[in-house]
């Protein structure tokens, strides 16, 4: 059906997203196999995805969308708007009063504040994570690429592809599996530059039979990163399934994002 007409953009977009019905996805995969121009269109979409997310970072755009949503909700008739403003003002006053009381009570020694600057209970690494860093993992199936999200299930033998970007100049991508084995994805070796300008084209990886999970981590920085130190830290890391940042306290590390994939339990023949 799709042989005698150009493939519409929407179908190509949905194919890339993995949201095309199975029958159409298979037909399109067949076309892609023998059509270099079509494959080039798909590849251009992938690259454009990256370029758009770098030009318009998620953190910035999400904020704007939330503002627009609030504005849309705030279109009340005059009386309701006044009541809403009064409510907001009153809430701010109450928050200020309660906040002042809470911290004044803490400072007299009767009770410790839950979070203060330098409090060891604060997770330092999370304050450094940049919202515009992005690590995307795609599952490749018969010519299609489906984005995998945090804690999605995968199996041994699945072929995945990593895409990552950051407004910062340097980065390291590594993964740790359920056996504790650490794999360096970028740069190719610890001695190579961590400059993201030199990152290679996306590569496909086949997952091995390591149990429980695969966690992919993208660490970013303004300057060169100490790859050996990062690998050492990853090897010694404890609970990797928690999603907590691992590298936030290392010198130079500015951002850290990760994707945790859960390994499906293979049936045993016992």
């Amino acid at each position: 059906m799709m042989n005698h007409r150009p493939v519409p953009d929407l179908l190509l977009e949905q194919y890339l997203l993995g949201e095309l019905p199975k029958e159409k996805a298979e037909a399109l995969a067949g076309l892609l196999a023998g059509d270099e121009a079509l494959e080039a269109r798909l590849e251009a979409l992938r690259h454009d995805d990256e370029a758009i997310l770098v030009s318009y970072p998620p953190r910035v755009i999400v904020h704007k969308i939330q503002e627009r949503t609030e504005n849309a909700r705030g279109n009340f008739p005059g009386g309701q708007r006044m009541a809403r403003m009064a409510f907001v003002s009153l809430s701010l006053v109450l928050i200020s009063v309660v906040g002042a009381w809470y911290f004044s009570r803490s400072s007299d020694g009767t009770q410790e504040p839950r979070f203060t600057p330098g409090n060891p209970g604060t997770v330092v690494g999370t304050t450094r994570i940049k919202g515009s860093d992005s690590l995307m993992v795609f599952l490749k199936t018969s010519g299609s690429a489906v984005r995998l999200h945090d804690r999605q299930a995968v199996s041994a033998g699945d072929v995945i592809e990593l895409q990552y970007r950051s407004p910062l100049k340097h980065g390291v991508v590594l993964s740790v599996d359920g056996r504790g084995a650490v794999t360096l994805h970028f740069p190719r070796s610890p001695k190579q530059s961590t400059s993201l300008a030199q990152r290679p084209a996306p590569r496909a990886y086949e997952l091995d039979d390591a149990p429980r999970f695969e966690r992919f981590i993208f660490i970013t920085s303004h300057g060169p990163l100490p790859v050996e130190a990062l690998l050492k830290r990853a090897r010694k890391a404890g609970d990797l399934m928690s999603g907590d940042p691992l590298f936030g306290d290392l010198p130079g590390v500015e951002g850290e994002v990760s994707v945790l994939l859960m390994k499906k339990q293979e049936p045993t023949n016992d």
């Binding site: 953009d9 979409l45 995805d49 758009i52 997310l53 318009y56 998620p58 999400v62 939330q66 999200h149």
Partner: peptide
């Protein structure tokens, strides 16, 4: 899926559509 994930996943497609039209 939260808004940021939705934007990362679908934002480029939507922007391309708007640009084209």
């Amino acid at each position: 899926m939260d808004l940021e994930s939705l934007y990362v996943r679908y934002g480029p497609m939507v922007l391309r559509r708007c640009r084209a039209l």
